[in-house]
Simulated assay, not measured.
Amino acid sequence: MIRVFGRLRKFFAARPDGAGQAPPHPENRQHNIFEAAAVYVSACAEDDERRSDEAAGWVSPEALSFGVNELACRALIALARERDESPHSVARTLLGLPAA
């Protein structure tokens, strides 16, 4: 009886479609560009170099750049709406630039 269960376990573990296998460990899963950008930017804001380096390794530099750009645009729009100002004026204020 024990041999039967052992063979079944081996059979399911060896299936090419991955059926019967345990899900991947959380550290081994794929990250998307927006998740990487969120972790990267928040880590930079908190001066957490270890976490920002880790997030930068999850995706290609180009994908991270795209994700950071998208996050910046969304954050700027949200902040502009909250302040009832234009995104342009909020961006200049955040960067310490004089009003245009």
Score class of each variant (00 low, 15 high):
A72Q: 08
Q21V: 08
F11K: 08
A78C: 02
A45W: 00
E54L: 14
H25C: 01
A19K: 11
V4W: 08
A22G: 06
F5L: 15
V4I: 13
S60F: 04
R50T: 13
A13K: 14
V68Y: 04
A14I: 03
V68H: 03
F34I: 01
A99Q: 12
S42P: 01
G96T: 10
R83G: 02
S86H: 13
G96P: 14
M1N: 08
G67P: 03
L97E: 10
L97F: 09
E35P: 00
C73Q: 13
A43I: 05
I2R: 14
A63H: 03
F11P: 02
A56S: 14
I2A: 14
A63F: 04
V41I: 15
L79R: 05
G18F: 10
H25D: 10
C73F: 03
P24Q: 07
D53G: 00
H31M: 03
G57P: 11
R9F: 12
L71P: 00
P87R: 01
S52W: 04
E46S: 14
A37V: 00
R92M: 15
E85H: 13
A75G: 06
S89C: 00
S42M: 11
H31F: 01
A63N: 06
R29A: 05
A56L: 05
R3V: 06
F11M: 13
F11C: 06
D84I: 08
F11E: 10
T93H: 13
D47S: 13
R92G: 01
G20E: 07
A75S: 15
L64W: 04
A19G: 13
G57I: 07
A22S: 13
P61N: 07
P23A: 12
G57R: 03
A91Q: 07
